[in-house]
Protein backbone atom coordinates (compact mmCIF):
# COMPACT_ATOMS: atom_id res chain seq x y z
CA UNK A 1 0.00 0.00 0.00
CA UNK A 2 1.15 3.51 -0.82
CA UNK A 3 1.34 6.06 2.00
CA UNK A 4 -1.73 8.13 2.85
CA UNK A 5 -2.50 10.91 0.37
CA UNK A 6 -3.80 14.18 1.86
CA UNK A 7 -6.12 16.84 0.42
CA UNK A 8 -3.29 19.40 0.39
CA UNK A 9 -1.16 17.10 -1.78
CA UNK A 10 -3.70 16.96 -4.60
CA UNK A 11 -4.36 19.57 -7.29
CA UNK A 12 -6.47 19.82 -10.42
CA UNK A 13 -4.61 17.81 -13.03
CA UNK A 14 -2.91 15.54 -10.48
CA UNK A 15 -2.64 12.03 -11.84
CA UNK A 16 -3.85 8.99 -9.96
CA UNK A 17 -1.22 6.21 -9.99
CA UNK A 18 -1.89 3.82 -12.89
CA UNK A 19 -3.06 0.31 -12.02
CA UNK A 20 -2.22 -2.38 -14.58
CA UNK A 21 -4.43 -5.47 -14.68
CA UNK A 22 -4.24 -8.58 -16.85
CA UNK A 23 -7.56 -10.44 -16.66
CA UNK A 24 -7.42 -14.08 -17.74
CA UNK A 25 -10.32 -16.42 -18.61
CA UNK A 26 -9.77 -17.88 -15.12
CA UNK A 27 -10.31 -14.46 -13.55
CA UNK A 28 -13.52 -13.96 -15.56
CA UNK A 29 -14.82 -17.30 -14.25
CA UNK A 30 -13.90 -16.29 -10.68
CA UNK A 31 -15.71 -12.99 -11.22
CA UNK A 32 -18.77 -14.82 -12.60
CA UNK A 33 -18.87 -16.96 -9.47
CA UNK A 34 -18.32 -14.16 -6.96
CA UNK A 35 -20.67 -11.64 -8.61
CA UNK A 36 -23.32 -14.07 -9.85
CA UNK A 37 -23.06 -12.82 -13.45
CA UNK A 38 -23.05 -16.03 -15.47
CA UNK A 39 -23.74 -14.45 -18.87
CA UNK A 40 -22.02 -16.78 -21.36
CA UNK A 41 -20.39 -14.02 -23.46
CA UNK A 42 -17.71 -13.88 -20.75
CA UNK A 43 -16.52 -17.51 -20.91
CA UNK A 44 -18.13 -19.30 -23.90
CA UNK A 45 -16.40 -18.25 -27.13
CA UNK A 46 -19.01 -19.78 -29.48
CA UNK A 47 -21.81 -18.09 -27.56
CA UNK A 48 -19.98 -14.76 -27.76
CA UNK A 49 -19.35 -15.11 -31.52
CA UNK A 50 -23.05 -15.91 -32.05
CA UNK A 51 -23.87 -12.63 -30.28
CA UNK A 52 -21.90 -10.54 -32.83
CA UNK A 53 -18.95 -10.21 -30.46
CA UNK A 54 -15.29 -10.75 -31.42
CA UNK A 55 -14.92 -13.47 -28.76
CA UNK A 56 -15.26 -13.55 -24.99
CA UNK A 57 -15.09 -10.14 -23.32
CA UNK A 58 -14.35 -8.82 -19.85
CA UNK A 59 -17.43 -8.07 -17.69
CA UNK A 60 -18.23 -4.34 -17.54
CA UNK A 61 -18.53 -4.60 -13.76
CA UNK A 62 -14.99 -5.98 -13.65
CA UNK A 63 -13.68 -2.90 -15.54
CA UNK A 64 -15.41 -0.82 -12.85
CA UNK A 65 -14.00 -3.03 -10.09
CA UNK A 66 -10.47 -2.41 -11.39
CA UNK A 67 -11.18 1.34 -11.36
CA UNK A 68 -12.51 0.92 -7.81
CA UNK A 69 -9.27 -0.83 -6.85
CA UNK A 70 -7.24 2.04 -8.35
CA UNK A 71 -9.28 4.63 -6.42
CA UNK A 72 -9.26 2.83 -3.04
CA UNK A 73 -5.51 2.13 -3.37
CA UNK A 74 -4.98 5.84 -3.99
CA UNK A 75 -7.21 7.35 -1.27
CA UNK A 76 -5.87 4.95 1.39
CA UNK A 77 -7.35 4.04 4.73
CA UNK A 78 -8.47 7.58 5.60
CA UNK A 79 -10.08 8.42 2.28
CA UNK A 80 -13.71 7.65 1.44
CA UNK A 81 -15.18 6.74 -1.92
CA UNK A 82 -18.37 8.74 -2.53
CA UNK A 83 -19.15 8.02 -6.18
CA UNK A 84 -17.78 5.59 -8.75
CA UNK A 85 -19.12 5.05 -12.24
CA UNK A 86 -18.15 4.24 -15.81
CA UNK A 87 -19.57 3.57 -19.27
CA UNK A 88 -18.48 0.52 -21.25
CA UNK A 89 -17.87 2.04 -24.68
CA UNK A 90 -15.30 -0.45 -25.91
CA UNK A 91 -14.78 -4.12 -25.27
CA UNK A 92 -11.86 -5.48 -23.30
CA UNK A 93 -10.55 -8.92 -24.11
CA UNK A 94 -9.01 -11.41 -21.69
CA UNK A 95 -5.23 -11.96 -21.95
CA UNK A 96 -4.61 -8.24 -22.58
CA UNK A 97 -2.97 -5.71 -20.27
CA UNK A 98 -5.47 -3.09 -19.12
CA UNK A 99 -4.43 0.26 -17.77
CA UNK A 100 -6.57 2.02 -15.16
CA UNK A 101 -5.85 5.75 -15.05
CA UNK A 102 -7.27 8.92 -13.60
CA UNK A 103 -6.82 12.65 -13.33
CA UNK A 104 -8.20 15.11 -10.76
CA UNK A 105 -10.80 17.51 -12.23
CA UNK A 106 -12.20 19.31 -9.15
CA UNK A 107 -11.20 20.04 -5.57
CA UNK A 108 -13.49 21.66 -2.98
CA UNK A 109 -14.59 21.66 0.64
CA UNK A 110 -18.26 21.33 1.58
CA UNK A 111 -19.86 20.72 4.98
CA UNK A 112 -16.41 20.20 6.52
CA UNK A 113 -15.41 17.50 4.05
CA UNK A 114 -12.60 17.67 1.48
CA UNK A 115 -13.87 16.49 -1.88
CA UNK A 116 -11.88 15.46 -4.94
CA UNK A 117 -13.50 14.64 -8.26
CA UNK A 118 -11.60 12.72 -10.88
CA UNK A 119 -11.97 11.64 -14.46
CA UNK A 120 -11.10 7.94 -14.54
CA UNK A 121 -10.84 5.43 -17.34
CA UNK A 122 -9.53 2.08 -18.54
CA UNK A 123 -7.25 1.93 -21.60
CA UNK A 124 -6.73 -1.10 -23.80
CA UNK A 125 -3.21 -1.98 -25.09
CA UNK A 126 -3.77 0.33 -28.14
CA UNK A 127 -4.24 3.29 -25.78
CA UNK A 128 -7.98 3.60 -26.48
CA UNK A 129 -10.20 4.71 -23.58
CA UNK A 130 -12.67 1.85 -23.55
CA UNK A 131 -14.17 2.72 -20.21
CA UNK A 132 -14.55 6.42 -19.38
CA UNK A 133 -15.87 7.18 -15.93
CA UNK A 134 -15.82 9.48 -12.94
CA UNK A 135 -15.20 9.20 -9.24
CA UNK A 136 -15.74 11.43 -6.20
CA UNK A 137 -13.79 10.88 -2.98
CA UNK A 138 -13.10 12.64 0.29
CA UNK A 139 -9.54 12.92 1.59
CA UNK A 140 -8.17 13.75 5.03
CA UNK A 141 -6.47 17.12 5.59
CA UNK A 142 -3.03 17.44 7.20
CA UNK A 143 -4.38 19.96 9.73
Amino acid sequence: MAKQVYFEDVNIGSEIPTLVKHPTPRQLVKWAGASGDYYEIHYDKDFALNNKLPGTIVHGWLHLSFLGQMMTDWIGEKGTLVKLGASYRGMLRPHEDLFCKGKVTKKYTAAGKNYIEAEIWVENPSGEKTTPGAATVTLPARK
Partner: peptide
Protein backbone atom coordinates in the same frame (compact mmCIF):
# COMPACT_ATOMS: atom_id res chain seq x y z
CA UNK B 1 -28.69 -10.21 -26.81
CA UNK B 2 -27.74 -7.75 -24.12
CA UNK B 3 -24.76 -5.78 -22.87
CA UNK B 4 -24.00 -3.74 -19.80
CA UNK B 5 -23.70 -0.11 -20.95
CA UNK B 6 -22.54 1.39 -17.68
CA UNK B 7 -22.94 1.58 -13.92
CA UNK B 8 -22.82 4.47 -11.46
CA UNK B 9 -22.58 3.86 -7.73
CA UNK B 10 -23.09 6.34 -4.93
CA UNK B 11 -22.03 5.45 -1.38
Amino acid sequence: AGLNGGNELEY
